[in-house]
Each structure stands twice: as C-alpha cells, then as structure tokens.
Amino acid sequence: MSADSVRMAVDSQRCIGGGQCEMLEPEVFLVDDDEAVSSVIGSGVLPRARADVVVHRCPGAAVSIVGPES
C-alpha cells in the first residue's frame, strides 16, 4: 500500500466475536461464525488512519497494529 500503511493483528484470546472489525474492513478481518472469533485475512495491511478506527472501535481491545507494512 503506501508508506503510511500498517499491519494488523487480532488477539484471539480477547476477541468477543462481534464483528465490528469485519464490518469496517471486510478485506482484512473475517469472523468465524461458529467460533465467533476474528482473524486477519489477505494482506492484513491497512492505511494508518483506517487502522486506528478499527483499533478504537474494537470492544475487546483485541485488534492491534503490529508494525509497518513490510
């Protein structure tokens, strides 16, 4: 993506499976309906500003930014 893109991660222990992340960024997060837990899919990369929104909105404090894109 761009210089300002970051890599995302989900802490499956903390995730409560409500799917806010998937609603906001369906290309990057996928919630498994049976286990009700989210994981990172695809490139796992988001522009910084959008990454911050997901981190802010995740009720389980399970989404984090693990570092720059590469």
Binding site: G18, E22, V37
Partner: peptide, 20 residues
C-alpha cells in the same frame, strides 16, 4: 469478566454479527 465473559459471549456472538 474474562475469561468467563469471553466464553459465554462467543456462544452467541456469531448470530449477532453485522453480516448475520
């Protein structure tokens, strides 16, 4: 609180995601 909360919540969370 977690971990009981997480276990119980996930029991029903799948049915209430935006997609579902």
């Amino acid at each position: 609180d977690a971990p009981d909360h997480t276990r119980l919540r996930r029991m029903v969370a799948g049915a209430f995601t935006p997609k579902n």
